[in-house]
Amino acid sequence: MITGGCLCGTIRYEMDNPLQFARNCHCAMCRKSTGAAFATWGYVEVQNFRWVQGEEFLGHYPSSPEITRTFCEVCGSNLQFLAMRASAAAFGLALGTVDSDPGCKPMRHVMVGSKAPWFDITDHLPQSMLAAPDD
Results as ranks from 00 to 15, higher is better:
Met84Asn: 15
Pro117Asp: 14
Cys6Phe: 09
Ala94Trp: 01
Tyr13Gly: 05
Thr122Cys: 03
Gly4Met: 11
Glu66Phe: 11
Asp120Cys: 06
Ser77Trp: 04
Cys25Ser: 08
Thr3Tyr: 07
Thr97Cys: 15
Gly4Lys: 08
Tyr61His: 14
Leu95Cys: 11
Phe57Tyr: 14
Pro126His: 05
Met129Trp: 04
Tyr61Cys: 08
Asp99Ile: 01
Cys30Val: 12
Asp123Thr: 07
Leu58Arg: 09
Ala94Ile: 10
Ala22Lys: 04
Met107Phe: 01
Thr122Gln: 13
Cys75Trp: 08
Lys32Asp: 02
Phe21Thr: 06
Val52Phe: 07
Gly35His: 09
Asp135Glu: 02
Cys27Arg: 02
Thr122Lys: 09
His124Val: 06
Asp99Met: 02
Arg12Ile: 01
His60Met: 12
Glu66Ser: 15
Phe49Ile: 06
Met84Tyr: 00
Pro65Gly: 10
Ala83Gly: 01
Ala39Asn: 14
Ile2Pro: 08
Glu14Ser: 13
Met84Cys: 08
Val74Tyr: 00
Glu73Tyr: 00
Ala36Ser: 13
Ala22Pro: 01
Phe119Arg: 03
Arg50Tyr: 00
Leu93Arg: 06
Pro18Met: 05
Phe81Gly: 01
Lys105Thr: 13
Trp118Ile: 04
Lys115Pro: 12
Gly113Ala: 15
Met1Glu: 05
Tyr43Cys: 00
Met107Glu: 15
Gly96Tyr: 04
Glu73Asp: 10
Ser64Ile: 03
Tyr61Trp: 15
Arg69Thr: 07
Tyr43Pro: 00
Ala90Gln: 10
Ile2Trp: 10
Phe57Pro: 00
Asp123Glu: 05
Ser100Gly: 14
Glu14Pro: 02
Ala37Trp: 06
Gly35Cys: 02
Gly103Val: 09
Trp51Cys: 07
Tyr13Met: 05
Cys72Val: 12
Ser77Gly: 13
Ile11Gln: 03
Phe81Arg: 01
Ala94Gln: 10
His124Lys: 13
Leu58Asp: 00
Gly42Trp: 11
Lys115Trp: 08
Ile11His: 06
Pro62Trp: 02
Trp41Thr: 05
Ile121Ala: 00
Asn78Phe: 04
Trp51Val: 04
Ala36Cys: 09
Ala132Gln: 13
Glu73Cys: 10
Ala36Phe: 07
Ser128Ile: 01
Cys8Asn: 10
His60Phe: 14
Pro65Met: 05
Ala132Cys: 09
Ile11Met: 06
Ser77Cys: 12
Arg69Met: 09
Leu95Val: 15
Phe38Met: 14
Asp134Gln: 13
Tyr43Leu: 14
Gly9Pro: 07
Asn24Met: 15
Thr70Asn: 10
Leu19Ala: 11
Arg50Phe: 07
Thr122His: 03
Thr10His: 02
Leu19Gly: 05
Trp51Tyr: 15
Ser128Cys: 02
Ser77Leu: 03
Phe91Thr: 06
Glu73Met: 14
Val46Met: 06
Cys8Ile: 08
Leu93Trp: 12
Thr70Val: 06
Phe38Arg: 06
Ser87Met: 08
Leu82Gln: 11
Pro102Arg: 10
Cys104Asp: 10
Asn17Trp: 03
Phe119Ile: 02
Leu79Arg: 00
Ala89His: 14
Gly103Thr: 07
Ser100Asp: 15
Asp101Met: 05
Leu130Cys: 02
Gly42Ser: 09
Trp118Cys: 04
Val98Phe: 08
Ile11Phe: 07
Thr70Phe: 06
Phe71Leu: 11
Gly4Trp: 12
Ala94His: 08
Asn24Ser: 13
Leu58His: 03
Ala94Asp: 12
Arg23Trp: 01
